[in-house]
Amino acid sequence: MKQTPELDRIQELMQPGVISKDGFLGNDTRNLTDILADDQRIVTNLGFTHQELANAMEELTEVGKKAFGNPVLVRGFLEVTVDSSKGKMASPFGGLFDKENVVVVNKKTGESIRWTTLNIHMIRDHGFYEGKGSYFRVEPEDLVRVLELYVG
């Protein structure tokens, strides 16, 4: 589906080698507008909003950050490790963000999920979870399952 020139420009910035080495789209060939619309639907069907998912991610990130790279146990079963790198990461939507990689392991199931500070911003402000196959793609279903988030 066609999209606005503004989204075209942003999608251009998401290509590999423009802002980040591998880009934000993975091997996703859909237009940005469709990626956004599809994820919006997935998140709505899960019973959440982008805001709620981003808040859950940010909360864990803030706790993990205080341990400077050490794992922290949250809610008794989530092991959160936040690793900071030098420099700032630019968002294709505009703005600069700290380079922080967050890994959360669910100790009950052994499953893990990964995200960055930039992911939180892109999810909260733009409903963008990155394209399918992208290294930093946050799969909404995985997020809800691993973090054991409940509606309401």
Partner: peptide
């Protein structure tokens, strides 16, 4: 119709167009 359908996802862009 084609830009009408494609650019009508948000108010700001549609007003620009």
């Amino acid at each position: 119709m084609c830009s009408y359908l494609a650019i009508s996802r948000d108010l700001k862009s549609s007003w620009g167009l």
